[in-house]
């Protein structure tokens, strides 16, 4: 895509990526549920140096009344980057990019939420990116899904999200900032994960975006890779929820 692409050593002799990962490795990921006290649900997800805090208020009364839907809840979504979350300071408040991401993130989560259980109500979801190194929207969606679960909002399945990309004609999972900016492509994907008795029973893709220059085969490879990543993230989400409820119960298991 860029001329600099060819100059970068994307893989070392052992096939490791610029940050030492294998092609199908996620970055080091940490998740914590219930990190804020004012919101009804909250979570922080850290993927490498990308860190997002998400919150949920609601279901609650929605104002003004004309925004209400008689048969379902209405979601308001905010995605915002803190001024210090990027190298060159960003002006405070959501810009056009942030508004678009808020929109696609809402569409990524909404199909998983049992909206019809809360007619006329509003659910406010918000994500604050406090540090960014690629993958802020997918990390935000993963965090927001945890915040929804923490708020006790019923969902058909947990949503998890990550991006796959292509560098040096090779599909890689969970692109970092450098791979995103200077690689061939970036495809963020979100999944609703369905599980029954610990068995993975299927999934639905609720977010796809892409920019770059790829063959259809490469795109399909990226989607498969990202789906695998989403499933790994989903396991970590379950662990993070268990961790919280273990603490609440005060027991070990």
């Amino acid at each position: 895509m860029t001329s600099s692409d060819e100059d970068i050593e994307w893989f070392d002799d052992e096939g490791k990526r610029v940050d030492g990962r294998e092609k199908d490795d996620l970055r080091e990921t940490e998740m914590e549920v219930d990190v804020l006290t004012e919101a009804d649900g909250s979570a922080m997800v850290e993927v490498g140096n990308t860190r997002v805090i998400a919150s949920v208020f609601g279901p609650q009364e929605l104002h003004p009344k004309h925004l209400q839907e008689s048969d379902r809840a209405v979601i308001k979504m905010r995605y915002n980057m803190a001024p210090f979350s990027v190298d060159d300071r960003m002006s405070p408040g959501p810009n056009r990019r942030a508004k678009e991401i808020g929109l696609v993130a809402k569409k990524a989560l909404e199909p998983a939420i049992e909206m019809e259980k809360f007619p006329t109500a509003g659910i406010d979801i918000s994500m604050e990116v406090v540090e960014s190194d690629g993958g802020t929207r997918v990390t935000g969606i993963t965090a927001a899904a945890l915040a929804l679960a923490d708020a006790g909002i019923p969902m058909k399945g947990m949503v998890s999200a990550t991006a796959a990309g292509v560098v040096d004609e090779t599909p890689v999972l969970d692109v970092n900032g450098k791979e995103d900016k200077e690689g061939n492509a970036d495809i963020p994907i979100a999944l609703i994960n369905y599980d029954e008795d610990g068995e993975h029973t299927g999934e639905e893709i609720t977010l796809v975006q892409m920019d770059g220059d790829l063959t259809q085969e490469q795109v399909e490879d990226c989607i498969e890779l990202a789906k695998d990543g989403c499933r790994q993230l989903h396991e970590m989400q379950q662990d993070a929820m268990l961790e919280k409820y273990r603490q609440l119960r005060g027991g070990d298991e």
Binding site: L36, E38, F57, N80, P83, P92, D124, S126
Partner: peptide, 10 residues
């Protein structure tokens, strides 16, 4: 500059 994030208070 200070921003009061919407998540900070209902």
């Amino acid at each position: 500059n200070a921003e009061l994030a919407p998540m900070a208070r209902r």
